[in-house]
């Protein structure tokens, strides 16, 4: 995946069943962000794989003061890429059926 400077990782073991999963996001390379990033640490949150949109969560992080508005796309893309990977892994581990 493209290196956005923002890293998103699972914050719990994925059992492949839960719709809502714990994620952890932090900035690895602040230079990739457009705005001035105030280093607050890692942000832990839950994400509903079925019903939520990465960009909406990114906007909530902006609204909460973690990032500036100009970086909402980078944060959203970082979350979306990780979510896509989680979904892809789940599909691979599901039996193709009969």
């Amino acid at each position: 995946a493209e290196d956005t400077g923002v890293r998103v990782e699972l914050n719990e073991e994925d059992d492949g069943k839960k719709a809502s999963i714990a994620l952890k996001l932090w900035v690895e390379d602040a230079k990739k962000l457009k705005g001035k990033y105030k280093d607050t640490g890692a942000i832990e949150f839950t994400f509903d794989l079925l019903n939520e949109v990465a960009e909406v969560v990114a906007q909530e992080m902006v609204d909460s003061g973690f990032f500036l508005e100009c970086d909402v796309k980078i944060v959203g893309k970082s979350i979306r890429d990780r979510v896509a990977l989680i979904k892809w892994r789940r599909e691979r581990t599901v039996s193709p059926g009969n």
Partner: peptide, 27 residues
């Protein structure tokens, strides 16, 4: 512990914690 909670108006809970060791990468 060094954690803090931020609750967004939409109800989502963000918990701020120390960055994992893996952040240490070569620049």
């Amino acid at each position: 512990s060094a954690t803090a909670q931020v609750v967004h108006s939409a109800g989502r809970r963000f918990i701020v914690s120390p960055v994992p060791e893996s952040r240490l990468k070569d620049y």
